[in-house]
Design a protein around this nucleic acid. Sequence first.
DNA 1: CGAGCCCGGGG
DNA 2: GTGTACGGGCTCG
Length: 819
Amino acid sequence: MTKLMLYPLEVDYKVVGGRPRFYIFGRTQKGEQICLIDETFRPYFYILINHANFDSFVKKIKSIKARRRDREFGVVDVEIVRKKYKGAEQKAIKVYTKLPKDIDALVDKIKDLPDVAEILETDILLIRRYLIENHITPWVLSEADGEEINIGLSIKTYRVSSISQNSTDVYENPKILAFDIETYNPTGKEFDMSKNPILMISFYSDGFKKVITHKRIKTDKEYITFVDGEMELLEQAKKVIQDFQPDILAGYYSDNFDLPYLMYRAKKYRIDFDIGLDKSEPMVRSGSETSIKIRGISHVDLYKVFIGIMERRLNLTSYSLDSVSEALLGEHKDVVDIENLWTSWNNENDEELEKFAVYNLKDSELTYRLCLEAKDVLQELVRMVGVPMFNSARMAFSQLVEWYLIRRSADFDEIVPNKPNHKELVERMTADSIKGGFVFTPEPGVYENLAVLDFRSLYPSIIVTHNLSPSTLNCKCCKYSPKYVPGQDKNWFCSKKDGFIPKVIRDILDRRTRIKDMIWDKKEDESGVLHSRELVLKTLANAFYGYLSFFLSRWYSRECASAVTAYGRKYITEVINWSSSEGFELVYSDTDSVFLILHDKEVSDIIKFRDKVNDFLPGLIELEYEGHYNKALFVPTKDGTGAKKKYALMDSRKHITVKGFEFIRRNIPKIAREVQFEIIRLILRDEKDKIKDFLDKMINRVEDHKIPKDKLIISTQLSKKIEDYEMIMPHVAVAKRMIEQGQDVSEGDIIDYVICKGEGKLKDKARVPTECDSSEYDAEYYINNQIIPAVDGLLSLVNMDPARFNYDGKDQEKLDKFI
DNA sequence: CGAGCCCGGGG
DNA sequence: GTGTACGGGCTCG
């Protein structure tokens, strides 16, 4: 037996020889990659019964036999355990099985037995259960006694009978390898893996740069290496990954592009792309979102991280590699004409191809550096939620909360509630929606000199302060002195005993406070990790309210969720009333924030006001000063009232923050996006006098057919087969026409079209860009249906009547009037 | 009006 | 991950 110390990173399991076999992939303190094999763990679930005669019930359970395929099986073992469920302590029957799949078959036989009250925890994913049961947090130093075995893995493997964790030592410096591919793409639109080869692949890490390509070019860049053809490129790429032995393989959009592409091309050449540490190929897990798992290596798709867990902090209008790099690193991608890569490749243009190779490497470098930015967040997430990084990096907030709660359930001896059954789902979905936060609709307009105050983590603070939990709802012990939820006269929450949910949220918030104190104590340059950790805790805490009201939640509670918002409305309206009595003018408020005009007051006055308010707020509830803005604009909706969550702010450094406007969508023509942003800019920069002129010229240019076609193109993907469409939309109509013309159009293609002059619906007027020239586009459509809707709200803010733009294509006078 | 469909990222 | 999962906007029918 060898004593093994390792940081477990990824965990997998397979059924081998009729039992679950766990693979714990990790790294030793000396930096060696190893794998522990544990075959001792047994799946289990719980039964609650209506009476106290456990002996006879257990006997019955033990005699049950089920059958699947040719195998007959029963329960493996039974224990009676003390547990808490829905706030009450009780004895539960813990039933062990041999295989996870046995559970369903056995439950089928048990569920209709007399006296069965509930059957619980039948669907806890086994890997997660294994980690929770053994108190293993991934990335934290663990130990085991093991015996070296060889089952064909590419790394040292040990059989263990248990694994434990007595340390808080975290694996600090994972080996990260970033990669990126460039492909041949003559259409510039759809990415056809079956036709177009990979031209180059780049890798980047600390002190490691490599580009592999299969066209020899003159270059003095020593990191560019050449191979004979795509097949060898794939083999070399595989070798780079295997030799490097990364803990994290990082890509950008690699779940949906780079890895599927590599795998497809490898298959074409019959190469085993077996980069998994057990020599398996990456596994495609397709659901609503595709993801690709590599056994033993944490494949992280940073795009998923930035649109997921880090989205709130970034709040960008686009999540392209370029935009995110700019926001987080202050750096852009190399500027190249990527549409010309295929021609440069065909023409064997050394100089251009070298640029593309450099560009390719730069993408990997940015990806690598973004991964470093995200690393601390991901590590903290893994530590909090206890789920390996591959999964943590892709989970929706609701899942993160759920897995955090499942993990904490074990600490508090709580049994995890079931997912909703069909009946409960229908109830949840058909119920009236829960009354939300308080919203003060802004009067559309442009404002100056605003301060923004918001409640720090309002909802989690409310849950903790008022002890809102399913188990504390309408408790017996407070029945005669209930503190009713504001505006409700039947629901109260216990003021004596802490509920499970408030307890776990309090832990998160306490941990956050400790980290904030550490940040305070430390020098600025050391606190990057702490900021990331603090961000994760805040994000996780804030996700609980949504989880309580999420229809698929295990801890769903309409009563709790509506109490959260009721308290929220109470506090925000109190702040609003108080602020107006102090002479601040409310412009906008949504749930937990207020936008106030300072008028003759100073920023210092708003800070004093905040402090006064905080003296009165109970528990953890706290108001914060968010910032000051020189200008803000709020646009109207169609009915003329202010739109919620759609505004733009400009700070003293003229930096513009935009919320709720949509800029980056391929089905909005460029012309509309460009005009919209320019108007926002002109308004906030106080250059309103230029708006008329700008729009005037723009509309004239549209009208005179001077807009280049590429700014008018609307692109829409054909997401299914033509014949499967029930509804004929413009892109479907165009696709049909293309087929009639003998073009090859298939599922998945991006259909470009321009709306041209003509009769009928949009679908009748949509044309392939090449079949119409600039004189034919429907200027009226582009003005009325694209440009005006994008700007009309904005225009009304500067007293320009959008109606005056309603150019109908015949009445030239209307347009002249505008001029 | 409701239902159906598409967007994001990647070359 | 051996289940179920986005949210908002536009167009057709």
